[in-house]
Amino acid sequence: MYQLLHKEKLGPDIYLYRFRAPDIARYRKPGQFVIVRINENGERIPITIADVDTEEGSITLIIQAVGKTTLQMAQMRKGDSIPTLTGPLGEPTEIEKVGRVLCVGGGIGIAPLYPVARAMKDIGNHVTSILGARSANLIILTDLMREASDELIITTDDGSEGQKGLVTDAIRNLVDDGEKFEQCITMGPPIMMKFVCILTEKLGIPTIVSLNPIMVDGTGMCGCCRVTVGGSIKFACIDGPEFDGHKVDFDELMARLDTYRSEEKNALERYSSHAGCRLDSMSEGGSR
């Protein structure tokens, strides 16, 4: 069993969890993820590790409540335990000194981006980060990201914080101002990563993306997580989760993420009416 040592709300439906998992903490590198299962009848879901504390023997996960499992997690209290935390899984990010690096994070994708940005900076790169979300209260880890970056830009769709607009607008502005980047890393909703990749391909900036397909085992056994990269099948859990963004078939990824959409919706509705708890976004009348 893996004990919850600390939990904190970072924004609407966004929570930070610190679990005791010394073995995972010891060997984990930036870019890797864990599989979480919260009770005996629980599903196995992949979550990227946002941080580790080897002294405490803990790992930090930042999770947005969007479905039954993540909403149930949001009800957990310090001291509670979950039966499964498996990892660290996936290949770590290649952290190399390349010069000027652009880190683009969207919404909850800022969580897995943070350790990568920090490692990129620690090794001596100049890091420019762009964080984007619909609205100011959905931007997370601003302070940590500021520390991990030489320059930080925030964009919101509604202009409630930073520049009004999309992350791609911010990238274009930087490049128009004469900035040059050797490498871009982007993590966030697939639709955002897709448009970042379309842009960076035009701009000739090599781009790494971290993919988040549905998974079951997370060890390469089921092929549920398969994605098409450069025309061939890859298993995101073993070959990824990071890939050359210019080669990824995002439309297929997005379609496959919808495989169980109606089942997930039913499960969430049943659970929230039964347990009497709701997503913040439900009360706000938002879709997700």
Binding site: G42, Y260, A267
Partner: peptide, 19 residues
Amino acid sequence: TRANLMKAYDFPAADTPIV
């Protein structure tokens, strides 16, 4: 795996769905 290990036959009592 969905059907056996993850008990998808028991969805939604068990959380894992199946096609």
